[in-house]
Design a protein around this nucleic acid. Structure first.
Length: 613
DNA sequence: TGATTCACGC
């Protein structure tokens, strides 16, 4: 069937076309570009292009009404641009751009041109047109912002958003949705909150499900889960997407129980999980190592036949079993997948590496390559961890060579750190340090890998030197760095320094001391015989479940023969958990060493009473 | 033109 250019791209006015666009969002898709007569014609460029131009030219040639004829020519070009955008036919679009310039239509076609470029992914061309012509077309701006958001160029999306508003335009629900996506991925929760306020002010949340889900997702991606949950709860309507966004947020933050709770609640409200929901829930099961729940989800997924087609879900399943330490099961799932990719394999390799099963991880790595799949930076990180875990420095170095040859270290701190850590675990600290220093950039984690190495090898001075170097690079130490540094100070007997760092970690670096850090301080003062100071550290702790810290203090009391502080710590420990036998043993020792045998016997009696042994 | 999912470093 012959289709004319008019039937295909039409000569609809822009408002008609946009109305159509807006109303038929759901069923649209690319079908027009892939099948049917319209496509065939359009994909015959010579036929199309020439016919379109002929149409535009004919219109211009009409004598009667010059002005409207000119409009028709321009409209036809605009319609053709729109078709290019729809089919992502950039080449054809560029030819139209030339034609538009030749005919001096640029002023009137610039928005349509920008939209075409935006849809074809040529974002800088689109941006140039909109900025240069101070476009007042909301849809063209939104197309560009959506393009940036799709490509992961979130800063560019925000910049365009600002410029659009600077031109006097007010965003609509679609613009807001794109900007929320950018905010979420940039973890820009303050900006996201401002957008939220504006959306609420305009009453858009009550009418637009997509926007509402985008808002939940924004807060979830920012880790502001209370806000995400609140938004979801206050929505007049929810769906599986808004629920999944929240579940994904909890899973991402490691709050697996909350994720599972939401999953239950979602089903209570009558929503059936889809493949995306299942992937989120599997991640949640992995983070809390709930293999039973994971198995249950696995059965549900299999029953619904999702595993036959969905490689993401299959990989999520491999990852869940791997994170739960059920590696045989993970491997079985991987082997039974109809097809697997580098993600599926990397999940399994990471699982083996995590459990210290370096040999198995390396076997998988080889098998993956035999299947013709190429490892990427994520795969290599896990493989390096595997080499470190079995101290296979030769294999590690071989992998490092491959990585370097592929230029993967250029901008990948995670991978660089994995190399450093591999050398550290193999005891090659000089090599580790050399790699670290040659990395294009470093962060607290990469430094900590090296610092931990020096610390564990008893080279405390070196650890502190690195720490100072790290600070001089303007980097903020994190919780792990401080644990390591406090331990180092403890072993070197640097009480004052340790105390200074301990105070600074919260006040200067915003790292809340964890029970581990308090334990370091107790150990430090305890070793030095400052038992009163150690006891004071415990008194100032904001934790309740702290038997381990108390027994650290009691160990120091045993060493220094301090019955009073020892008794105090013991009483605290019994208050927390009277069934923990270890503290009775230490207390009995303390009494016995002080020649207080009756008290020691009493403690042993209490131990039998309370702990049964 | 807009929403949810899988693998990595101390």
């Amino acid at each position: 069937m012959a289709t004319t250019i008019q039937q295909n791209v039409g000569v609809a006015t822009s408002s008609q076309e946009r109305a159509h666009h807006y109303d038929s969002r759901k069923p649209r898709g690319d079908s027009q570009c892939k099948a049917g007569p319209a496509v065939d014609t359009w994909h015959n460029p010579s036929l199309h292009y020439e016919e379109g131009l002929a149409l535009a030219t004919q219109s211009q040639d009409t004598e009667n009404n010059k002005k409207s004829a000119l409009d028709d020519g321009c409209s036809a070009l605009i319609a053709m641009l729109r078709a290019c955008g729809k089919c992502k036919d950039l080449q054809q679009g560029i030819r139209l751009h030339d034609e538009i310039l030749k005919r001096h239509f640029l002023r009137r076609c610039s928005d349509a041109l920008a939209t075409m470029y935006a849809k074809c992914g040529a974002l800088s061309k689109a941006k140039e047109l909109l900025y240069k012509h101070h476009s007042k077309d909301l849809y063209s701006w939104t197309d560009l912002i959506a393009g940036y958001a799709r490509q992961g160029l979130y800063h560019d999306a925000l910049e365009c958003f600002r410029q659009m508003q600077y031109e006097g335009l007010s965003p609509d629900a679609v613009t807001f949705a794109c900007i929320l996506k950018a905010c979420g991925n940039l973890k820009a929760s303050n900006m996201g909150k401002r957008i939220h306020d504006e959306i609420a002010r305009q009453g858009l949340l009550g009418t637009d499900m997509v926007l509402a889900s985008a808002l939940v997702d924004m807060y979830a991606k920012c880790g502001a889960l209370a806000s995400a949950q609140q938004v979801l709860e206050e929505l007049p309507f929810r769906n599986v997407v808004s629920w999944s966004a929240l579940i994904a947020g909890y899973a991402q933050e490691g709050q697996g129980e909350q994720a599972l709770h939401c999953f239950e609640q979602m089903q209570c409200e009558g929503f059936s999980p889809d493949e995306v929901t299942f992937a989120c829930v599997l991640k949640a099961c992995g983070t809390i190592e709930d293999v039973d729940k994971g198995k249950q989800i696995h059965e549900e997924i299999a029953k619904q036949g999702f595993l036959d087609t969905n490689i993401v879900l299959g990989s999520a399943l491999v990852d869940m079993y791997a994170k739960c330490g059920a590696l045989a099961k993970a491997q079985q799932v991987l082997e039974e997948m109809p097809s697997r990719n580098v993600v599926s394999w990397s999940a399994l390799i990471a699982g083996y590496a995590q459990q210290g099963l370096g040999k198995e991880a390396l076997n998988c790595f080889d098998q993956m390559k035999r299947e013709g799949l190429s490892p990427n930076a994520v795969t290599y990180s896990s493989v390096l961890k595997a080499c470190g875990s079995i101290q296979d420095i030769d294999r590690g170095e071989q992998i490092y060579d491959q990585i370097a040859r592929q230029g993967l270290l250029g901008n990948n701190i995670v991978l660089g750190t994995a190399v450093v850590d591999m050398y550290v675990k193999c005891g090659a600290l000089a090599k580790a340090q050399k790699v670290l220093e040659e990395l294009p950039s470093r962060d607290a984690v990469s430094w900590s890998a090296l610092i931990t190495g020096f610390c564990h090898q008893g080279q405390g001075e070196q650890a502190l030197t690195c720490f100072k170097q790290m600070l001089s690079e303007g980097l903020s130490p994190d919780a792990v760095t401080f644990s390591c540094i406090l331990n180092t100070c403890s072993h070197l007997g640097l009480l004052e320094d340790a105390h200074m760092y301990f105070m600074a970690m919260n006040t200067k670096y915003g790292v809340k001391p964890s029970i581990e850090h308090y334990t370091c301080m107790v150990d430090l003062f305890g070793r030095a015989g400052h038992l009163d100071k150690a006891a004071r550290v415990i008194q100032e702790m904001p934790f309740y479940d702290h038997v381990a810290v108390l027994s650290t203090l009691m160990g120091a009391c045993r060493k220094w023969g301090d019955v009073n502080v020892g008794r105090w710590a013991f009483e605290q420990a019994v208050n927390v958990d009277k069934r923990d036998g270890s503290t009775y043993v230490i207390m009995a020792d303390i009494y016995a060493a002080a020649g207080m045998q009756e008290d020691a016997d009493m403690i042993n009696f209490m131990k039998v009473e309370n702990c049964g042994i």
